[in-house]
Design a binder for these strands. Structure first.
Length: 478
RNA sequence: GCUCCCAUCGUCUAGGGGUUAGGACACGAGCUUUUCAAGCUUGUAACACGGGUUCGAUUCCCGUUGGGAGUACCA
């Protein structure tokens, strides 16, 4: 049987990092097994629909390198791939269940249901539909429906027995039917609920493996029952462990960024984010950690997916981002850094930027650090770090630095070795340690006390800028 | 409350009936060094608890505790 998997988000705004991991695992599994990865949009809740969310979802997935084979705009003869465009299908299948006695019309108002639940919890019993409409004769129910009365379709869950299914990650899961509710299948607005839509679509789209978050585990028995009602073959299930906040609750907004877009905007590389998220719940079994998407495809398997939730640890993501940045060539990084520089209104040549990237790529954590952590490559310092100044700019520094400046201005080739030897010869003439020149010079050029090799920095900045900044500092650092 | 799921360093995890319980992030120390990083070396740090099974359990079983998820005409 060929592998067909799907990622089925609801378009409520942005792509959650948990969703990214779910999509990724589906994608990896499909690619690893020559299968098909499908994107399906689950927009059956009209009240939660967000304008542009689907487009955004697709764009973000694309950014991450997770391409779908079938989905909105990519027909694979199993569409449409947007549930709101499949409404008649759900109605038909719901009616089929009703006809077979596996579901029934329910006319209870939400007020009544709320009241029932209130009473139940007051009595200490688990809140469940009380079966009020279960026994309405089908003819009578049909008549009320035809008369225009508002109704929903509920699935009829047997009072006895149990549902068993096998999960690729968790093994056998068993649940008693009596703990299952008579779930609403069709809402009064004519839209299906998730439970009906997911089963119908997974079957019609010939999904072989349902890979989704653990939050779906408790409702899977209802889905299994539905497959049985329809007489359809069950797909394989894999319920992924949850991504957690530092306090171990389900990863959510309010405790940090959860949108992939947020991480993208902050300057995390897609390679790093994908690598990181892949390792939240999966590992290759050895000690390698830096993986490309292709590496992941080659090595991924559900056997190596863990069962327990994983805290989303930014520290490790930072490290991983650094690792991915470091191994990229300067040319590779250029198109990523350039827009950031342009956005700031700075104009520098590609050649210049390449040098900056070369000097900075081992000391940045996120891409934005290429501008924010070293603005001195793009504009003269507007201020000087106070602690650095107190520590490195002594009363005699002005004298020393101006002598150094004169020397530097005589240089014919302004490269790092020449600058270094010039500086060292000045320090010898002055009979002072090289550090007495190095630190003040760094402060004068950059305004801060840390950064790449001073001599290389000066080389990249160029003779004119170096001279200008020294004079500027001389005026300002009295 | 009820149902289901889960349980190795602070975090991500490897491992598995007999191991000095391994790696990574973070943290500490050192080396390197003009600074900051990076890199290298190194240190601190874990099998939740109680019963079984067994010659021997962190590993297998049961229970407890703890955590999480679900409990909607949301997905």
């Amino acid at each position: 049987m060929s592998v067909r998997v799907r990622f089925a988000p609801s378009p409520t705004g942005y792509l959650h990092v948990g969703g990214l991991r779910t999509a990724l695992y589906n994608f990896l599994f499909a690619k690893k097994n020559n299968g098909t990865f499908i994107l399906r949009i689950e927009d059956t809740d009209q009240s939660r629909k967000v304008e542009g969310a689907t487009e955004n979802l697709i764009a973000t997935l694309q950014w991450a390198g997770i391409e779908f084979d079938e989905g909105p705009g990519k027909d694979g003869h199993h569409g449409p791939y947007i549930q709101s465009q499949r409404l008649t299908l759900y109605t038909e299948y719901a009616e089929q269940l009703v006809a077979g006695g596996k579901a029934y019309y329910c006319f209870c108002t939400s007020e009544r249901l709320e009241e029932v639940r209130k009473q139940q919890s007051a009595q200490g019993i688990d809140p469940k539909y009380d079966g009020h409409c279960r026994a309405i004769p089908i003819d009578e129910a049909k008549k009320r429906v035809n008369d225009g009365e508002s109704y929903v379709v509920r699935m009829r869950v047997p009072d006895q027995g149990e549902v068993k299914f096998s999960d690729m990650i968790r093994g056998e899961v068993t649940i008693q039917n009596k703990s299952l509710d008579d779930q609403v299948l069709m809402k009064s607005d004519g839209f299906p609920t998730y439970h009906l839509a997911v089963v119908v679509d997974d079957h019609l789209m010939e999904i072989s493996h349902v890979v989704r978050g653990e939050e779906w585990l408790p409702s899977t028995p209802k889905h299994v029952l539905l497959y049985q009602y329809f007489g359809w073959e069950l797909p394989k299930f894999a319920h992924l462990p949850l991504l957690l906040n530092p306090d171990k609750s389900k990863l959510s907004k309010r405790q940090g960024d959860v949108a992939v877009e947020d991480y993208r905007a902050k300057g995390y590389l897609k390679e790093a984010l994908v690598n990181f998220v892949a390792f939240l719940g999966w590992n290759p079994g050895d000690e390698r950690e830096i993986f490309s998407l292709d590496d992941l495809i080659n090595e991924f398997s559900f056997e190596r997916v863990g069962k327990s939730g994983a805290v989303f640890n930014i520290e490790k993501l930072n490290w991983m981002n650094q690792q991915h940045i470091k191994v990229r060539t300067n040319e590779d990084l250029l198109p990523l850094v350039k827009p950031l520089v342009q956005e700031k209104g700075w104009t520098v040549s590609d050649e210049y930027l390449l040098h900056v990237i070369g000097l900075m790529k081992e000391r940045v954590v996120v891409m934005n650090d290429f501008i924010s952590a070293c603005s001195y490559f793009y504009e003269d310092p507007s201020a000087y770090d106070e602690t650095a100044r107190a520590k490195n700019w002594k009363p005699e520094s002005s004298g020393h630095v101006s002598i150094l400046c004169e020397k530097l201005e005589t240089l014919t080739s302004f490269d790092a070795p020449s600058i270094e030897s010039a500086l060292r010869s000045v320090s010898e003439e002055l009979k002072i340690g090289a550090g007495k020149l190095i630190h003040p010079l760094r402060l004068a050029l950059s305004g801060v006390s840390n950064g790449p090799s001073l001599f290389h920095m000066a080389e990249v900045l160029g003779k004119e800028t170096v001279a200008r900044r020294i004079k500027l500092a001389l005026e300002r650092l009295q």
